Amino acid sequence: MDVCVRLALWLLWGLLLHQGQSLSHSHSEKATGTSSGANSEESTAAEFCRIDKPLCHSEDEKLSFEAVRNIHKLMDDDANGDVDVEESDEFLREDLNYHDPTVKHSTFHGEDKLISVEDLWKAWKSSEVYNWTVDEVVQWLITYVELPQYEETFRKLQLSGHAMPRLAVTNTTMTGTVLKMTDRSHRQKLQLKALDTVLFGPPLLTRHNHLKDFMLVVSIVIGVGGCWFAYIQNRYSKEHMKKMMKDLEGLHRAEQSLHDLQERLHKAQEEHRTVEVEKVHLEKKLRDEINLAKQEAQRLKELREGTENERSRQKYAEEELEQVREALRKAEKELESHSSWYAPEALQKWLQLTHEVEVQYYNIKKQNAEKQLLVAKEGAEKIKKKRNTLFGTFHVAHSSSLDDVDHKILTAKQALSEVTAALRERLHRWQQIEILCGFQIVNNPGIHSLVAALNIDPSWMGSTRPNPAHFIMTDDVDDMDEEIVSPLSMQSPSLQSSVRQRLTEPQHGLGS
Rank of each mutant, 00 (worst) to 15 (best):
L63D: 14
L63Y: 06
L63H: 03
L63A: 10
L63C: 07
L63E: 13
L63Q: 15
L63G: 02
S64T: 12
S64I: 07
S64N: 06
S64V: 14
S64C: 09
S64M: 14
S64H: 12
S64D: 14
F65G: 14
F65D: 13
F65H: 11
F65V: 09
E66R: 07
E66A: 02
E66I: 12
E66P: 08
A67Y: 11
A67K: 09
A67T: 02
A67S: 02
A67R: 02
V68K: 12
V68S: 05
V68A: 06
R69P: 03
R69T: 09
N70F: 11
N70Y: 03
N70D: 01
N70T: 07
N70C: 12
I71Q: 10
I71N: 03
I71P: 13
I71M: 05
I71E: 08
H72I: 11
H72Q: 04
H72G: 09
H72N: 02
K73T: 05
K73N: 04
K73V: 09
K73C: 10
K73H: 10
K73D: 05
L74I: 03
L74D: 08
L74V: 03
L74N: 09
M75D: 07
M75G: 04
M75E: 12
D76V: 06
D76W: 15
D76T: 15
D77P: 08
D77C: 06
D77V: 01
D78K: 12
D78P: 15
A79K: 05
A79L: 02
A79P: 05
A79M: 07
A79E: 01
A79G: 01
A79H: 06
A79N: 08
N80L: 07
N80E: 11
N80V: 07
N80D: 03
N80S: 01
N80F: 07
N80K: 05
G81H: 14
G81N: 13
D82N: 03
D82C: 08
V83I: 05
V83G: 03
V83K: 12
V83M: 00
V83W: 05
V83D: 12
V83T: 09
D84T: 08
D84G: 04
D84S: 07
D84M: 09
D84I: 09
D84C: 06
V85L: 01
V85Q: 05
V85N: 08
V85H: 07
E86G: 03
E86V: 02
E86Y: 06
E86N: 09
E86H: 09
E86I: 09
E87P: 13
E87V: 01
E87H: 11
S88E: 05
S88H: 03
S88D: 03
S88G: 01
D89H: 02
D89C: 00
D89V: 00
D89N: 00
D89G: 00
E90W: 04
E90Q: 02
E90F: 11
E90G: 00
E90C: 08
E90Y: 04
E90M: 05
E90P: 10
F91D: 15
F91H: 14
F91C: 12
F91S: 07
F91T: 15
F91E: 15
L92A: 15
L92C: 15
L92D: 15
L92R: 11
L92M: 03
R93A: 15
R93Y: 10
R93D: 14
R93H: 12
E94I: 14
E94A: 12
E94R: 15
E94D: 06
E94W: 13
D95A: 00
D95H: 04
D95T: 13
L96Y: 12
L96R: 06
L96T: 14
L96I: 04
L96M: 09
L96H: 05
N97G: 00
N97W: 00
N97Q: 01
Y98W: 01
Y98E: 03
Y98C: 00
Y98H: 00
Y98R: 04
Y98T: 00
